[in-house]
């Protein structure tokens, strides 16, 4: 078991192998993402019941929650990939970490924007300086910081190292986001999904949400692979296999 894992880990480190295997994975993840997001959106917008207090504005949950979950998961993934690149000098891990940043920033922005649009009819304000909202805004700035660092160095190695360090330090913000609704008095409602408890919502409300969360994970997988593959093509453009591959398509 361990030996297979180590072998897999080593192969994952080869840009060529990574490029080939993800080329086979992308269509499946893309199909799953399109299917799940289409089903989840239709279900959430047209079939799920309205909230007895919030009415139909509650339907914003079906993008707000998946985007917020992904914003945090992607940051975590970026820190782990950055850490692997830092310790084992694995080039592919550096490229994965770099590719995470813009996708994570998008998800964070979507979570903040949909939250503001949901807050207006629900709380009467677009924005409040509450612990959950503020820690999410910090997450967005951390993503901007990583993106800026990635382009601030001439050497790809220094850029990867600096970004990995910022990502690893920034990870402390993730539990702060998670527990902010428990630690401070906030306007923000507590988590919909908890590992230890059943959701407080009826299944006809949380089932489309679960579909959307899984769909968003598949979407992330697709765009992460697309970006990392481009990164590989760019950095390995002097190798024969990349030149052969690119000229075949041109």
């Amino acid at each position: 078991m361990w030996k297979t894992f180590v072998a897999w880990f080593h192969r994952m480190g080869s840009p060529k192998w990574f490029y080939e295997i993800t080329g086979r994975w992308i269509p499946w993840f893309a199909a799953a993402a399109v299917l799940l997001i289409t089903v989840g959106t239709t279900w959430g917008l047209a079939f799920a019941p309205a909230d007895y207090q919030q009415g139909n504005s509650f339907r914003i949950i079906y993008i707000h929650v998946p985007a917020a979950i992904l914003a945090q998961s992607i940051f975590f993934a970026m820190a782990i990939a950055g850490g692997i690149g830092l310790i084992w000098k694995m080039k592919v891990a550096d490229m994965v970490a770099k590719s995470c940043a813009p996708i994570g920033a998008t998800m964070t922005f979507i979570a903040l924007f949909t939250g503001a649009v949901w807050g207006k009819p629900t709380w009467g304000a677009w924005w409040v300086w509450d612990a959950r909202l503020t820690s999410m805004l910090i997450l967005l700035f951390l993503y901007f910081g990583v993106i800026a660092l990635q382009s601030a160095f001439d050497s790809k190695q220094s850029a990867a190292r600096a970004s990995a360090i910022l990502s690893l330090v920034g990870v402390v913000n993730i539990p702060i986001i998670k527990y902010s609704v428990d630690w401070w008095n906030t306007l923000h409602q507590p988590a919909t999904f908890k590992l230890t408890e059943k959701p407080a919502m009826p299944p006809e409300m949380w089932m489309p949400l679960l579909v959307m969360v899984i769909g968003f994970y598949c979407f992330f997988a697709v765009v992460l692979m697309m970006r990392t593959r481009n990164e590989i093509l760019e950095r390995e453009k002097r190798t024969q296999w990349v030149q052969g591959l690119l000229s075949e398509k041109g």
């Binding site: 917008l45 914003i60 993008i63 985007a67 979507i110 924007f113 949909t114 649009v117 949901w118 207006k120």
Partner: peptide, 10 residues
């Protein structure tokens, strides 16, 4: 307006 704005921009 709120629901469609959220879904549209996303």
């Amino acid at each position: 307006l709120y629901v469609w704005m959220a879904y549209g921009l996303s």
